[in-house]
Write a protein that binds this DNA or RNA. Sequence first.
DNA 1: CGAGCACTTGATCGCTTTCAATAGCTGTGG
DNA 2: CCACAGCTATTGAAAGCGATCAAGTGCTCG
Lengths: 251, 251
Amino acid sequence: MAAMNKHAATVDHAGCAECPIRHRAVCAKCEADELAELENMKTYRSYAAGQPIAWEGETAEFVGSVVHGVAALTQTMVDGRRQMVGLLLPSDFMGRPGRTVASFDVTAVTDLTLCCFQRKPFERMMAATPRVAERLLEMTLDELDAAREWMLLLGRKTARERIASLMVILARRSVMLSQGLPKQTVSFVLPLTREAMADYLGLTLETVSRQISQLKSEGVVVMESSRNVTIPDLDRLLEEAGDDSDGGALA
Amino acid sequence: MAAMNKHAATVDHAGCAECPIRHRAVCAKCEADELAELENMKTYRSYAAGQPIAWEGETAEFVGSVVHGVAALTQTMVDGRRQMVGLLLPSDFMGRPGRTVASFDVTAVTDLTLCCFQRKPFERMMAATPRVAERLLEMTLDELDAAREWMLLLGRKTARERIASLMVILARRSVMLSQGLPKQTVSFVLPLTREAMADYLGLTLETVSRQISQLKSEGVVVMESSRNVTIPDLDRLLEEAGDDSDGGALA
DNA sequence: CGAGCACTTGATCGCTTTCAATAGCTGTGG
DNA sequence: CCACAGCTATTGAAAGCGATCAAGTGCTCG
């Protein structure tokens, strides 16, 4: 099956200057000379949807940034219960400087391209130039905030609110990527299966399916297929998510 | 009531060299000259148990480290549901460089002493000397790992497993602080009320109480009072927590 | 001694899980 | 072209765990 093979994505970028994640990834603050150094040490790797990238407890020989696609960090208990603890979207950083052993399983959720750096040279560069380390700190603090928002969802939100919250996140990202002006209607494709959503939301896949059906029947979301979502009224969705409304604009 | 008043803790440390968190806080990697600079800008602040330290959405005028005591980061939904999203123990850092608006409510859980820095001078120092920034990145990455462990607990663990997991964390900390050699029996004081535990664990206080009672009746924990815990068999507790057993030693 | 607070315990309710069957979609091969 | 396998998703019925509502206990402090 195609899903089991690495496949060559479009990784023939002329250089970092044209990279789609140039201003959001770890390299965002780099000057031309630093970028050139990174350029020399980078390698692209591609993974098909479903492929493992790293296993918990094993040494990950590289770190890197997501260029295209989506990857998931998951944790699994001995009896098989599984919880997704992070979703890596384009520009997100994978791997931890200063620690060679991965803390979590990493899997490609969709077809995926990573911009990888060997651990040692990258750590040397971090020590030498502050810009990369600064940016990484900034990104890590953002991730920590996101993880804490997620803890509220997992600890206190109802199944319905969890689904709505996930939709809000995906809608927000869709708006950001398309650089669209804030409008009330948004459409996007769910990059996750029902099972992956369940793993993310701390629910079972049946509950995910049921709650989506209900939101659909009430007109909060409109679905052309099981993966194509349209949100007719974002304010309504935000209410369902149980978040403090931030005025409704996906700022 | 005493709980509403600031009270003077023992903050008359001669200097950073004698500070109890000297080798674990943000200043851990600093040389003597850098330490002197921090010494000039630091102020101690004390809070009584229950006092607020910062409110979500308001500007926090300082950042700092926990010296003594325990603080909690919490998030509250409009209808009052509350989730603790972080527990700040001695040496943990509070506040986010580069962001003036607090993302979460911060409250003193026990009587508390903070070693505070004005935001601006601290940020200037971070930009000038890499050691502080390096250490902060390290600490932030550790916190992110801890947050992700917590997401597994909130998303997938049973009430019983959650209680056991909290006990494991507190037992582990108690062993670290007392520098004791790893042994099978550990005693410690619960720094949290049942309600605070519930907020941390994503449960109600009644469920917390019931599960503690059950663990007690089964001999997994022994309690001299409602706050004094003894763990007669750590391996047993680890099993109950549902974590991969790491051999049982609280390494 | 009584007020206030933290905690415990009981009874019931309801949401989510579990178990189970069915539907829809996609690709493969006769 | 249709049948079928394999997978994803939906839906139903029943069970269970934790929440909710409600007393009651024990401790500390005035």
